[in-house]
Design a protein around this nucleic acid. Structure first.
Lengths: 309, 309
DNA sequence: TCCTAACGATAAGATTATCTGATGAGCGCG
DNA sequence: CGCGCTCATCAGATAATCTTATCGTTAGGA
């Protein structure tokens, strides 16, 4: 019977991911020779070459590639044993790797971390901010425990829970204050500023206006930048309610609410259906949801002040 | 992050299976203290008690039980990495754990082992002889690579390939030689000797006669015994064609073939759909099939001699 | 009630596996 | 042609794991 160790699997996984002995060793917090040796032993144990060492790079053989997939799956299961153990103890404790999209994170995160650590001091939150596809991939692969994204995700292996829905508000240069709110058709005639490609919020905004992406190449990398651009008179944009408090506080822009049906998005939390933390995550989603609720109330108040001010 | 080793998983698996530190240690080919230590470390790593050490026995906790299931699954995947590696090398080589039912094994096995090792000298065949349910269980759990049983098995996780169909012949005491062959209805009036419970061949025989099990408690544990009992005038029985050569050579019994539709069974080979050896197993099934073909020709010749002799 | 056998836990020393740091060899690039 | 980057190899150090011997507990029989 072939004798593989967990070490070998972990090292190989790192190597397969990074394609570089030195960096993989660093990721495993060991020296490069240690990794080389384990990989070599693994190849001997399996009786096949896992990767080709070309001068400038390391490439997985077809065999190595297929094996890497299986190994990843195994490591995921092994890591889940730990989660399962924690869940069995039935307390909200230990590491929680949480992903968030960039149009939610800056506004929701402080509140979430505050509420969560207040209610569960033993919890150890690691947050990663990425766009939806990256988050989903990491989630499915077990490198995240849960993610907060715009729904729907429609990934069959994931459970999704809606946290809240929020409207999009129109941000215009200050001289528009009090002007009529344009319909979605009229928006198409205006210069609409957008986030760069890959942000789901960009697509949602475009979809509301029922338009293609303009080819102006002025895309911003954050909502904050967008609002600044509007303040500079470069055009108009949309932002989610949640961002109102933070983003319009110090900018000289005019905020307006669309007529019904207002554009909106649903933000929710997703996790692997098979996650042993399911029960805990459901609890957490409630905490996050109420944090968001509080935030939206603040934002509404801020908008009121803004409009009156 | 929790650090579990493959050792710990293997030792725990053995312990969960055997429920006994000493025997589990023996199964792992280590000393009992070594196993105790690893289990203890595993419990510490997971932060939960895996089993209760009562004075006379060890019992898995609910947590341990659930964990054991996951661990088994993981170990199965890990072991399959080896199989996968072999399969990738695309040669028929290495260990092959093959199960067979007792009404096939004694007749087919010598020929199969001969043919297989002749064509593939590097193959290392381990055979286990058990009744169908045991074989299927071990197969599904990854403790066997393939099994030869009577079809259908109807286990959704298994692939089944028919190897051959064989008729059942009537075995009577010698004085019946040349007498009319009874119909299946008439069989019910005769004293039909059967294998003990659990053999699929017993059920197939009963089903052909369309009858319940008689309550005579004379069940035999092998076809060989059955034929001897017939020779001693205790009744009649059925045997599969394949057994004719071996079982009636030295017994003074009369063989007769039923009128069509003759009773029969289909013998086939099964393996996990997910087995990385699938390709190889398909090849092997062909070799086994042709071995069986040869055997059945021999058996037919033997029957001819018997009838004439 | 006491003794014994069975069982799992513990401890000390030996053994094996794994790691580090130094160094070597192959290769692309300036 | 030598430099820098990369992975492989080696020797000695360190850490993980094992074995043997022994202990404490408990159930069952004398």
């Amino acid at each position: 019977m072939i004798h593989l160790t967990m070490r070998q699997l972990r090292y190989f996984d790192a190597l397969a991911r990074l394609g570089h002995f030195g960096r993989a060793a660093e990721a495993c917090a060991i020296s490069q020779p240690a990794l080389s040796m384990q990989i070599k032993e693994m190849e001997e144990a399996l009786g096949g070459v896992l990767l080709e060492r070309n001068a400038r790079q390391v490439v997985l053989t077809r065999f190595g590639e297929q094996l890497a997939e299986r190994v990843r799956e195994i490591l995921r299961s092994v890591d889940e044993l730990g989660d399962f153990a924690r869940a069995s103890r039935d307390k909200l404790t230990g590491r929680l790797r949480l992903g968030m999209i960039p149009t939610v994170a800056p506004y929701l995160l402080p509140k979430v971390i505050g509420n969560l650590t207040r209610k569960h001091p033993e919890i150890d939150i690691h947050v990663r901010e990425s766009k939806t596809p990256t988050l989903i991939e990491e989630l499915v692969e077990g490198r995240l425990d849960a993610a907060i994204v715009a729904l729907p995700v429609s990934e069959p292996s994931l459970t999704e829970v809606a946290l809240f829905a929020e409207n999009f508000l129109l941000v215009r240069p200050p001289e528009y204050e009090g002007a009529d709110v344009p319909s979605s058709e009229m928006l198409r005639e205006m210069r609409l500023l957008l986030l760069e490609e890959g942000h789901c919020f960009r697509d949602q905004a475009l979809s509301f206006c029922n338009m293609q992406a303009p080819r102006e190449m002025l895309d911003a990398s954050s909502l904050s930048t967008l609002v600044q651009m509007v303040g500079a008179g470069m055009g108009v944009t949309l932002i989610p309610e949640m961002a109102v408090g933070v983003e319009t506080r110090s900018a000289s822009v005019s905020l307006a609410r669309f007529a019904d049906p207002q554009p909106q998005r649903t933000v929710g939390m997703v996790w692997r259906k098979t996650s042993p933390l399911a029960k805990q995550l459901m609890q957490i989603s409630e905490i996050v949801g109420s944090a968001a609720e509080g935030l939206r109330k603040q934002a509404a108040a801020a908008q009121g002040r803004k409009r009156r001010g």
